[in-house]
Design a protein around this nucleic acid. Structure first.
Lengths: 119, 119
DNA sequence: TAAACATATGAACAATTGCTCATATGTTTA
DNA sequence: TAAACATATGAGCAATTGTTCATATGTTTA
């Protein structure tokens, strides 16, 4: 049974028309998954706070932990997630590892989020 | 013991300087929470798919369920979450309820997300 | 008013997630 | 080389989350 043979409220004269529009704009399955995974990373206030610190400077793990009043382990786990999403990058300098923002989208995305909640 | 009396790697000559910068830019606790809550909403591929459908048209619940091959209940639960975040709005017309995008930030945020994962 | 249709919602369950604790890895220094 | 320091990571646990199922609410129509 095709998707457009429907029993439901049948709002559109042509479901085919809507389906064509939707299918044209809908990203691939993989892209949808990646998008959701990306936003999940922003969906935790600890990671948001880490990003806000990195807005100001390149910071090492122990400083991040201290600034945010959290354990080194907790911060390290979250940095791993941020790095896997390519939102931050790291650089080792002696015993310390310094983290910084990986690209400009981070700022834009968070700025848009703030605009939304502030309106 | 003050936050800036630290035992840790002491990268910054003046932790105070960094702390001042961070504190200046860091949003309120409530804002951080709201931001994370907002991005959590984007962090699910079903909700992303719903938003992509609404990019094209105002659509009723049963059509959304059909287009996305999901149950009416599942869609309805997700629409509630999207509505609570003021990402979509609804309008009743007879037995049907039509949903549409609530504001322009939705498009911008998703567009920035796609740019990030495509790069 | 009763039946049919469209949507909303609460409970329950499996799956995911963020933190802690213990410990491993990597680097410097005595 | 051994000890100290900085970071990373795996296991475990409580909390959160997305779906299903059953059912309630709201609207139209026979």
């Amino acid at each position: 049974m095709a998707v457009n043979d429907v029993e439901c409220c049948e709002t559109f004269q042509t479901h085919e028309e809507l389906l064509a529009l939707v299918n044209a704009g809908m990203p691939e399955e993989d892209t949808l998954y990646d998008l959701a995974e990306l936003f999940k990373v922003f969906g935790d206030s600890t990671r948001i706070r880490i990003l806000y610190v990195l807005f100001e400077a390149e910071v090492c793990v122990c400083d991040l932990a201290e600034i945010l009043h959290m354990t080194q382990s907790a911060i390290s786990h979250q940095l791993k997630i941020l790095k896997q999403s390519r939102l931050v990058k790291s650089r080792r300098e002696g015993k310390s590892v310094f983290y910084s923002l990986a690209d400009a989208h981070v700022r834009t995305i968070i700025a848009q989020g703030r605009e939304h909640i502030d309106e």
